[in-house]
Design a binder for these strands. Structure first.
Lengths: 345, 345
DNA sequence: ACATTATTGAGGTGCGTACATCATATTGGA
DNA sequence: TCCAATATGATGTACGCACCTCAATAATGT
């Protein structure tokens, strides 16, 4: 016979549908013994609740919010794009998405915006923001209100209710390290590491992983201290120029910063040898172009669309008290060379 | 106001719900002018059909079938696992999955099994089988019956109704080539290519891509003709022994065959130098172990879970005449090193 | 044993759609 | 202009579940 329904469950448990309903929705007024009996029956007849029908009956719409930094870099652009795309396709599944923006370095403002969400009827929030006490407290408040929360691309380790969606940055750094070690062959020289700021936790973690592998597999190379660009093109150019004027020669560059346009321009202007191995993060129009023209050798990235969809699934599941498929939510660290670069988007 | 329903649509179009229903489900008995009027109203009020409710009302269960080769290698194992997992999680979405097996080299049997499916009430089939006239005809018959078909991991170019789900094998071969070229540094020597059989189309495509890159980026290396193992351990050992006894020294091995256990054993027995770069396909327990112990340098793979889920989504969408999110269905060519290896499964 | 209170059952309505039936309206053609 | 064919409307039931009310029953305390 086909899928058991609540009716079948009621019969199997020897109770009425009203009681089944009370148990399924964790309503009060049911003796423990009865609850157990129903749960036992659920297992016995292998009952799975039809969430589509349930949501229909509830006439419930899930509202999810993405809180993103209010500056624009190519990564954020990709996220916004993916959210918009997901929003279109999730309309069928009674889910609507919204993006709100907040200055990344203003914890109070972020917390305030999160608190404002509490007032609305929001079911879940994906938060991309640095960890601060204010944000942590706001997450706790959301959690207390039953709002699902995931930490999007940014760890919130002290907010235990916020599941982290993103890659392991230390492993990502190790991956870059391994590629750098191997792509540089037997060459000797120095390796530059560029980042927007080492304040960011992900930069620190990546650097950690990178150093570990480099010292193990490429002790012949001298990895220089991280150079911070602060997103300033002029500063970036100066830094690179200064670094390239010193010996030993630069045989590798690890770009951890996002908007690499200026950086690559500076590097190209110096006429860096083709031997210089350049590896960066995130597959964006810019890095894509650099891979194609050969100026970059590899990009370590994550599937932003997957990241977004995964967050949505997790939030929805939490909000609807459903289960998830763990393997589907694993975010992989992807290595992109020119040869395996996906064609579109 | 919230989502418009069919009732709103009926009012907006100035027709009855019955007519709306006829238009939405493309039933006959509606004048063209009326159809247009309804379609116009759909756009005006931005009506989107609630597929959850529609499927509920239809009380339709989608039955999808995976036709897989009946031999067992680790890739097939992964597929079976993923299908089982998906089946569990798709129960919520009124979809049930089934696997049937057929000998890969018996086109008649495969065609026969496909034809048998026509008798049952199947909504879609994912076919993993070599392209043959028999299979092509069966696919055409399925298509004529309104059964959705995707070509799973195996091109069916002449069956235009079967959308291909899988990676671009030529690009995969190019990717292996690029890694081989770079990982071997400046070393000189020969490169072995092992495969089960060069009969398989994917082997040919991979070899093609591999050679293109190798001749371009690593002309210093001599890529040997493909050696076929026919899945025979003894033969494999012999081949490898013979190859390693000839000069120039083997600096790289490209393993296109699936069950690499025996192959790796043979290679290890010869005490191949650590310098030998070994690259293979598919992340399985075996290759995973080889990556961890350093005996393999890289694995080019695809996310089997994603492959399966993508097939399911495509089949379901086709069966329910819905749209799909193209970007979600793109199967990426993944490069796995020890550093970015996913932890589980 | 009686009053309370805690459980449980029965039944109804609604969610947004599919689908079938029968009645009515519109249209084309002779 | 009238008939038949076709197009549309009205209505009811079903899908699997949520959620509400009211009544009936069982368990509890005193």
């Amino acid at each position: 016979m086909s899928k058991p329904t609540t009716k079948d469950l009621a019969r199997a448990a020897g109770v009425s549908m009203a009681t089944v309903d009370r148990v399924l929705n964790a309503r009060s007024g049911v003796r423990k013994a009865t609850v157990d009996r129903v749960n036992k029956a659920i297992k016995e007849i292998n009952f799975v609740r039809d969430m589509a029908a349930a949501n229909l009956a509830r006439s419930k719409e899930y509202s999810l919010v993405f809180l993103l930094p209010d500056h624009d870099d190519e990564f954020i652009d990709l996220v916004r794009e993916s959210v918009a795309e997901a929003n279109a396709s999730m309309a069928h599944e009674r889910t609507n998405l919204r993006i709100i923006r907040a200055p990344a370095n203003d914890p109070h403002r972020i917390a305030q915006m999160l608190d404002l969400l509490s007032a609305e009827q929001i079911d879940g929030v994906a938060i991309m923001a640095p960890e601060t006490p204010q944000v942590r407290d706001s997450i706790a408040r959301l959690d207390a209100q039953g709002v699902a929360v995931v930490a999007f691309e940014s760890h919130q380790p002290t907010a235990k209710s916020a599941y982290y969606v993103g890659i392991n940055n230390e492993a990502a750094g190790r991956t870059v390290g391994q590629l750098m070690a191997r792509f540089t062959g037997e060459r000797q020289g120095s390796v530059l590491v560029l980042t927007e700021t080492m304040q960011a936790r992900d930069s620190q973690e990546r650097r950690l992983g990178f150093d570990a592998i480099m010292s193990k597999y490429a002790p012949r190379l001298r990895v220089r201290p991280s150079m911070e660009t602060y997103g300033d093109p002029a500063r970036t150019a100066k830094i690179i120029k200064a670094a390239s004027e010193n010996l030993p020669p630069v045989v590798g560059v690890y770009l951890m910063n996002h908007n690499i346009g200026e950086t690559m321009k500076a590097i190209k202007m110096l006429g860096a040898s083709l031997q210089t191995v350049i590896i960066g993060h995130e597959l964006t129009p810019q890095t894509r172009e650099c891979l194609l023209d050969g100026s970059m050798d590899a990009v370590i990235t994550q599937d932003v669309g997957h990241l977004v969809r995964s967050s949505i699934r997790l939030l929805r599941a939490k909000a609807a008290r459903m289960g998830t498929v763990a393997s589907q939510e694993r975010i992989r660290i992807e290595i992109i060379l020119r040869e395996n670069m996906p064609e579109d988007t």
